[in-house]
Nucleic acid binder design. Structure first.
Lengths: 260, 260
DNA sequence: TCAATTTGTCTATTCGTCTATACAAATATG
DNA sequence: CATATTTGTATAGACGAATAGACAAATTGA
């Protein structure tokens, strides 16, 4: 590490004063972005708990081998994402916490979030009836061109966006679902209101990639952060597809759990 | 899009000549990196099939609204990852293809890769006996300090690295597993040789994040690409934990599939 | 109340990214 | 074989990232 430590750390328990792995240069990702990502990952991994204070800027800068201004640029982006908050004279504190998210036959966002001790909410962004294209038709096992209801929403836990995505429903099966969903903030409850008492997960497909502009915006996550992209098909008890959806989960705010 | 198209595209079916969404600037990710990621995502999404030629550099540059040199920098990184190959006078062609990877009670890498029509191989990187730390002990349900066998390996399909990770086994249960694994290139076969005929998946936990330096190196993926991090526990028929492992999957080369 | 600590802001310089122009080299096709 | 097409390389200038130094502002604790 080329940068010499500029401030001698106070005595006592001290994390992060040992040098971190060098931040690679020339990778196409700026230093401040990489540092922000590492700090975010460390927080997600539990290195610092909510409410805990991070090492001071000078220490972090030294540990990462960068200038304090570069380090501050990293912290600024974390603050922008809502993960940390800094106050002059006081320090920088952690705000975030990941959610344990089991995926099973009866995956229900509301139940999962409530079980995690937080407040679930489905923020309805928009819905409209459109004719099923080839992909939607295949997933829902209907004829191409059949009217489907397309709903776009964000799912939040304690006001923090967890997932953002789109779901398609057979329009004739779910009249006015968008209106009831918008009113209740819960998809499961809206379906129940419409007489659909049960459905279960048929298949979940997962990939991951860096968030795009829309996802960054809707999920309030920093550029370059990863999203887990879930494509899922839910079916009614008679086996008929009810819903096909594709959602992006803020990877740092959720940990998917599977038990075969 | 500020950049004017510099070459009139040839007549006939033509993708990508319409302008792509503008590449954001000031995000901490260079333009060439973002372009590389988008092209990689498009390839993974099936926009171009292996063997198919990408639009020429001038067209791509125009579509992304960047200089041809910037576009070339993006293509260079994709070529470095093995996704594409370019030849002067000939064009740029796609090489990559994602693997469908079902996760279930009997997840076996070899079976999955073979089912996908490719050649599976477990590249043994190293193994040694060590004393279980707190985390390993908890996952394997043994006393802290119990000797465990730690194995590091890369799993490949047709010579392309798919996952890289570490697994821990109760040393007394799997004597010489590392040696047999190194010799056979198949964990399942190695365990069978040692008298362990069956095991099943108890739990799989998934997160995602950008690949770190080691993962970029071992998986031959470009900086900033995402990895799917799987923590898994496998147990023997009697319910006793056999293996705890944590592997990083190249997110662009694999799509995880779950059927509850 | 004051000193110490920590974050916040300003100005300036150097290095890397992006753009631009031009032309060489390799391949494909008529 | 010649032309068109496409990638590959060289040089140069403008702009953003990173560094550096200095000092102000806010908070904490003695």
């Amino acid at each position: 590490m080329s940068g010499a430590a500029q401030n001698v750390p106070a005595e006592g328990h001290n994390e992060m004063t040992e040098e971190a792995a060098p931040v690679p240069r020339g990778t196409g990702v700026t230093l401040w972005r990489q540092i922000a990502e590492r700090l975010e990952a460390d927080i997600a991994a539990g290195r610092w708990q909510p409410g805990e204070r991070l090492p001071v800027e000078a220490e972090l800068a030294s540990a990462f081998g960068v200038n304090r201004h570069t380090l501050r640029r990293a912290l600024a982006s974390l603050a922008e994402s809502g993960l940390i908050e800094a106050t002059a004279g006081r320090g920088t504190f952690v705000k975030a916490l990941p959610l344990r998210y089991p995926i099973g036959p009866r995956t229900r966002f509301s139940e999962i979030v409530s079980a995690g001790g937080r407040w679930p909410f489905g923020r309805f962004l928009g819905g409209r009836v459109e004719n099923a294209d080839a992909e939607v038709a295949r997933e829902l096992e209907i004829a191409e061109g059949t009217p489907v209801l397309r709903i776009e929403s964000i799912h939040e836990a304690d006001g923090v966006p967890i997932s953002y995505g789109t779901a398609w429903f057979v329009a004739s099966r779910c009249p006015d679902l968008d209106l009831v969903y918008a009113a209740t903030g819960s998809l499961t409850r809206a379906l129940s209101t419409l007489g659909i008492e049960d459905f279960r997960r048929r298949e979940t497909r997962i990939t991951a990639r860096p968030a795009n502009g829309r996802e960054m915006e809707q999920l309030s996550i920093a550029p370059g952060r990863s999203v887990l992209v879930l494509e899922r098909v839910d079916v009614e008890p008679n086996g008929r597809p009810l819903q096909w959806g594709r959602s992006s989960f803020a990877a740092d705010r959720v940990q998917l759990v599977f038990k075969p």
